[in-house]
Design a protein around this nucleic acid. Sequence first.
DNA 1: CATATGTCCTGAGAGC
DNA 2: TGCTCTCAGGACATAT
Length: 284
Amino acid sequence: MPELPEVETMRRGIAGVIGSQIRAIVRPRSKLKPIEISPALPRFRRRAVGRTILDTGRVGKRLVLQLDRGDAIVIEPRMTGLVLVADPPNREHLRLGFSLAGGVPEFWFWDRRGLGSVRLVSADEFTGRYGPGQIGPDALHISSEELAARLGRSRREIKVALLDQKAVAGVGNLYASELLHRAGIHPRRPCDRLHGDEWRRLQAAMRQVLEEAILYEGSTLSDGTYRNALNHSGSYQHQHRVYDRAGEACRTCDGRIVRIVQCQRSSFFCPNCQPLRRVRQAKA
DNA sequence: CATATGTCCTGAGAGC
DNA sequence: TGCTCTCAGGACATAT
């Protein structure tokens, strides 16, 4: 489930490739269904080999390798994709290898479930697919005013709306629960019933939780899938307040964490820290 | 237009 | 032990 902190950790983990020229693109033979590579591999190779990686970036949950001449390679890990410079968890799920000139180690896209994708796009295609019209502002940098402007008239429940990448980019199922707990907001609160102080709390909690999770190099859940570029586990899972903790004690109060389902996805919250009705602060 | 639902994929774990 | 079933949740296509 790589979300913003995990993809940002991947990006930092492959910073060493900046300035290198791509020498070859390798797809290991496999009996698994191949991941989506676009354009198809022969054309992908012709356009990528010999090109220089000028920079790395991130658009929400996607990793970007900026090439010369305006092209970019966009890696979308989705559920179980990883970018690795070290030995992978196994070899069966290696999907695409990038070998580099100049003695720089190769790096790999590894994906157990194979829902991820790798695309090479022109500058125009990049804007069309990943520009402001398609993907909302980054969750780390959005202001509370913009967050409120983009979601405040929606009738959706706030937990569901936070997953909408057109509204705000980078928040996924895990961090949505965590940041709502930090903000003290119930996941079922309709967006259009949230008040100004709550949007401010939400934005602050979002930035704090995501920044902390980056410092801890993301969350590796019990299935162990997520690893950083060196194939090491993240450690933010030890800081989780609610995610995957149903029935356990809240670490902030005496309450018990509850699991509910919203849009076929699990949400976790503390009914005590996150009341369904807004609690008005008493005036001083 | 906004919102809701179904689909893709693999492997882990439960139940028998 | 080995089978079947359910579940996990990214983004997107399609339906309402």
